[in-house]
Design a protein around this nucleic acid. Structure first.
Lengths: 209, 209
DNA sequence: GTCTATACCCTGATAGAC
DNA sequence: GTCTATCAGGGTATAGAC
């Protein structure tokens, strides 16, 4: 039984996740990733061959993991409304355990997939595909109204990603008192409740009595 | 009457908008902005003093312009549901005439406002503030359900930004056939209709007969 | 206001010993 | 697998003539 020494590649990936999420692909510095991972740069190149290679590996793994979480829900056999609740909760949980995910996703969308190869793009595509599979039974059964799955996907995931990723900006705005004093603080919990409620209503088919 | 020669600063801003939206702050190259604006680099530095200064000027103007469009709707005196329709349409129109806006907004959120000064952050904050003013009468009158304005803001604007900004990625996915063949193409028009419908239902107060 | 040439730093990547 | 030293290229910014 070979016990592969994965510890250093894994530490590099973890450090890269932080750095890429904070600075984006172009803003990320290989030196900083190496320092954060407590490896020297040569080690990093030994394992991932280039900044781009490291980036792609990280994104492929991350997108793949999100898709798997969603696919589990799609085949759970739950009622449509419960599946939607679960999907939102799964995204929130994934983000809570992979805090780097929202900003990386947002940036990659803004970058137009510039740094991605076919494999990584495929992993990226598997996320909306899985989400579509979650909604499909509800639409087919007439519990959800007919919607384009991709439209529903963006309507669901975009607010979550943007809300979480915007935490630092919102903190700055509140610290500098740039938002109206009347606006109360918005916690992640309140936001998720609000959003879940919104999406359930948004997707529900009109009652035809 | 002095006729200020604004032509070259304006061309530089237009070129910067393109470059920053395609590559982000860190990925943008001053050389490329100058070349795109058909000015030489020294001219650019003469007008904006630094890459950061140029970036902040662009963002301050852009965020300010969006906020003004929304503020007009907030004071229009329309019915709450019509104001919401108008707000979504205004965002769509602004994006159609300022195609660089979505990716810049997405990236800035991901960057945590790192490159912004107080003025620019203030302009950024004026967007959700204006959106909150649009929803407030509806909530007060009981036409919309009680929601946190910032939650409603993200629920509305995030899908629009992400859908538009994702056009290049979605094109790539469809060109490389990485989405299930069953998923039809999603046009901006269909998306906006779907989203408008979704948000009206999401925000409407439950009917209490 | 406009341009050319250039300083100077930083960054991704590698060579080569161990 | 791990490390030190280093290079080559490209990046922001400025000097200084017109």
């Amino acid at each position: 039984m070979t016990r592969p020494a994965r510890v250093s590649p894994d530490r590099i990936l973890a450090a890269a996740a932080l750095e890429f999420s904070e600075r984006g692909y172009a803003g990320a510095r290989v030196d900083r990733i190496a320092r954060r991972a407590k490896v020297n740069k040569a080690m990093l190149y030994y394992h991932f061959s280039s900044k781009q290679g490291l980036y792609r590996t990280l994104l492929r793994q991350t997108f793949g993991a999100v898709a798997i979480d969603l696919e589990r829900i799609a085949v759970s056999g739950l009622a449509p409304a419960d599946m939607l609740d679960q999907a939102i909760a799964a995204l929130a949980t994934f983000i809570a355990t992979h805090t780097y995910f929202p900003s990386i996703m947002l940036r990659e969308v803004a970058d137009g997939g510039l740094h991605l190869d076919a494999d990584t793009l495929g992993a990226l595509a598997s996320v909306p595909t899985a989400f579509g599979a979650i909604l499909e039974p509800g639409i087919r059964q007439g519990v959800f109204r007919p919607m384009h799955p991709v439209a529903a996907y963006f309507t669901t995931i975009a607010p979550i990603l943007m809300f979480v990723a915007s935490t630092p900006v919102r903190k700055q705005l509140s610290r500098r008192r740039l938002m109206p004093a009347a606006v109360p603080l918005l916690t992640p919990e309140t936001f998720l409740e609000d959003l879940t409620e919104s999406l359930q209503r948004a997707f529900a088919a009109p009652v035809t009595t």
